[in-house]
Amino acid sequence: MSIDKETIRHVAHLARIELQPNELEKLFGELHEILGFIDKLSILNVEQIKPTSHILPISNVLREDELHVSLNSDKALENAPSKKGNFFSVPKIIE
């Protein structure tokens, strides 16, 4: 499996990462290697192996429906780049 530069640009955009031309080159090489590594799976027989979605052998971790103390809104908004009253404020965006 190989990857072209257009795909890298697309994925970078989806992740909102801005790439400089030299970074694109570097990633192109690195991603090739990573995909090549993963390709090794295709030469192995994995028929008997169940897909793994989590590496820890634990399941059903749940919490009871009990209230905890929330942050007060001053604290919650402390690091906001921009705020208005008790709201976070962002550039106007309507999809």
């Binding site: 919490r63 429906d65 009990e66 209230l67 905890h68 929330s70 942050l71 007060n72 809104s73 919650a76 908004l77 009253g85 008790n86 709201f87 976070f88």
Partner: peptide, 21 residues
């Protein structure tokens, strides 16, 4: 009573950003 992944209240109509963690 509480949110899906944390213990913040799900009450409707509370002051903005008061049921957050």
């Amino acid at each position: 009573k509480t949110k899906a992944f944390c213990g913040c209240s799900t009450d409707f109509g509370k002051a903005p950003n008061s049921n957050v963690c």
